[in-house]
């Protein structure tokens, strides 16, 4: 299936973005991992009906994308794709929660719509932050940073292999689906029966391929440790980066900055 192969190539592009020398790229991976972690905790810890207080958090992805020179449209497409899953999770909120929370003229907006919108904004922010982290750091360096921050080496390596296995699986799925489609003549093939066999073969083939890749890695001296090519250390720049962003997120989480600004502005015009 061409779409699967295209999606894989598109996803691999994210890794390639990490090969740059922007001010964000050169920051030690540990600082970026920690800032992203604080950002995600601050965003998801808002209550499910919160909208206005989430909006200031868009400053983080905006500044990071601008400084790192990441392709805005590409990231927006990826975030939109993942947000459809969030949409599926919250799609029934407006059906079950009909309590009117806001009134705009004669239109009443129910809590269900507010919570759905809040869920979408939170997923956009958190998924966006994760993409920005990988796009400015690279997955290998992220895993290495997690290990250096105290995650057991075994978990870090497993995470890395899982990430590699997704590409192997998607590659093989693309080929098998294409072969099946071409011999199905536009129909359903043999339906579930052929689909079951296809999935079984996929598992075995990807297993074998993953083993061959592992052997190739062993042949080049791999002993369970990944080395990121970019060498960096946790210096002053990293400390400022970490403290600056984390403080901002904590302030945005603790105080209602949007509400205060709104009151100030409406106060001026009164």
């Amino acid at each position: 299936m061409a779409s699967i192969s295209a999606a894989v190539i598109d996803l691999k592009r994210l890794e390639l973005l990490a090969d740059s020398d922007s001010p964000v790229h050169v920051i030690d991976a540990r600082a970026k991992v920690l800032v992203t972690f604080v950002f995600i905790v601050a965003v998801v810890s808002h209550n499910s009906y919160e909208l206005a207080r989430l909006l200031p958090f868009f400053i983080f992805p905006t500044v990071m994308i601008a400084l790192a020179g990441l392709p805005m449209l590409y990231l927006a497409r990826k975030i939109a794709l993942i947000s459809t899953f969030a949409l599926m999770v919250g799609i029934f909120n407006p059906v079950f929660d009909r309590t009117i929370l806001y009134q705009i003229g004669q239109w009443g907006i129910s809590g269900g719509w507010i919570s759905l919108l809040s869920l979408l904004i939170r997923s956009m922010l958190t998924v966006g932050a994760a993409f920005i982290l990988v796009g400015t750091t690279g997955f290998t360096a992220v895993c290495q940073a997690l290990e250096r921050l105290g995650m057991p080496q075994l978990f870090a390596i497993q995470l890395l292999f899982l990430h590699r296995y997704i590409f192997v699986l998607a590659d093989e799925t693309g080929r098998s689906s294409r072969a099946r489609e071409l011999r199905s003549c536009g129909r359903k093939g043999l339906g579930v029966a052929s689909f079951g066999s296809l999935v079984g073969h996929l598992l075995l083939r990807t297993w074998q391929k993953a083993e061959r890749i592992h052997i190739a890695m062993l042949a080049r001296g791999f002993v369970g440790r990944f080395h990121a090519h970019r060498q960096s250390s946790f210096g002053k720049a990293e400390l400022y980066f970490l403290l600056g962003w984390s403080s901002l997120f904590i302030v945005l989480r603790t105080f209602d900055v949007t509400g205060t600004l709104g009151t100030l502005i409406t106060g001026i015009f009164k």
């Binding site: 390639l16 690279g138 590699r164 061959r212 052997i215 190739a216 890695m217 001296g221 002993v223 080395h227």
Partner: peptide, 22 residues
């Protein structure tokens, strides 16, 4: 099959994989 041997994001990183392991 070179596809089994090349698994890093760029050619440079792939060639660097062995020396870094050394």
């Amino acid at each position: 099959y070179p596809d089994d041997q090349l698994f890093m994001p760029t050619v440079f990183e792939d060639v660097a994989f062995g020396p870094l392991n050394l």
